[in-house]
Structure formats: structure tokens, C-alpha cells
Amino acid sequence: MRLTGLQKILWAAAGIATLAYGAFMVLSDRAPLPVAQAAFRPTFALPDAEGRLRTPADFAGKHMLVFFGFTNCPDVCPTTLSEVAQVMDDLGDDAARVQPLLISIDPERDRRLGLAEFVTAFHPSILGLAGDAAQTRAAADSFKIFFEREEDPSAPDGYAMSHSPALYLIGPDGDWLRQFTYGTPATEILADLQSRL
């Protein structure tokens, strides 16, 4: 069981609310509601490699590409990080207006193995954040993402992580804009970003 029934309902409700609001904005000829009432603004407060607490306010005015992952993940995570790296390369000068973030869901081990060294090997612009258990859970809950540690004697260090592998796009005012499902080609992510920048 990956998602609880309640989580599925919450996801569905969030999706329906977003769609309904979009339809309202498109169809209504009345003045739109204040955006703050409808916007979904996921948040986090997590330390970077130097121990500085980073929050979305640090990146105000930029688009954020947010990925939850861990560095002991040789298959899924490098694929997404490589795509993000390719997007950043291809954005050229506009890359300065996009901040890619990897939020570790395995923060203790990632801090030990070196998160900054790992993410910057893909692209120097990627910032790795690794908090404590409570900060990590709070960030995941805020983004409505799932992660779980599973005890597995045959895995490295005796446990494996499962997680939502999508990439999330946050707007310059902190609004959640969309997600890119795992495996979305870099060209598609690039085209979407270029249409917004």
C-alpha cells in the first residue's frame, strides 16, 4: 500500500480544486478572486550544505524546479537530475531565473555521503537541501509528496527509500505551477519553462 486512502482523497481533492479554480477563472466574467485565496504555495525550511536555513523566500522572483530524492538512488534520481542539468544548460541566460533544488528524503545519510558534491556533479546550479526528520517530513507534507523508509536487509545500510519521483515547478511568487512526471523529457520541461520566462 503506497498511498493511504486519505492521501488519495486529498490528492484528488487538490486536483479537483485546481481544475475547478482554473475553470472558474476561464469561464467567469466576474472579477477574479484574490489569488492568495486559491494559490497553493508549498513551503520548506531546510539547511543547505553550509547549514544555512533555506526557505522559498530565498528564491523569490525565480522559478524553482523541486525534486525530492536521495543520493543512494543510482537509477531514478540521476535520470531526473540529468534532465534538470540539461534544462539548465539549454536555458542559457535564462538559467539565472531558475533555481533547481533537490530536497533529500534520506537526509542523515545524504549529509554523511555529501549532498552538495553529488548534486553539483550534475550541474553547479543545483542546490541540495537536507534537514532533520521533522523538517523533511514538513516539506514533503507541504508539497503533498510521499516518501517512506522501508527496512530491507539486502539494501545498502539495511534500508531502502520509496518516494514520489516527480519534478515540481514553483513560480516566482511561490505558487505551485505544475508537476513533470518522472521521465518527462528535458526538451518538454525546457519548452514549458521558456514559455513562462
Binding site: R2, K8, D75, V76, S154, A160, S162, H163, S164
Partner: peptide, 17 residues
Amino acid sequence: PMLHETVVMDGVASMPH
């Protein structure tokens, strides 16, 4: 070395043996 399979189910990725 081990054989793994990455599985994405209900939007969650895991890699069972």
C-alpha cells in the same frame, strides 16, 4: 551486485529486488 526493478506505482517510485 543485485538485480533490481524500479517500479513507479501510484506516483511512488521504489526499487525492489
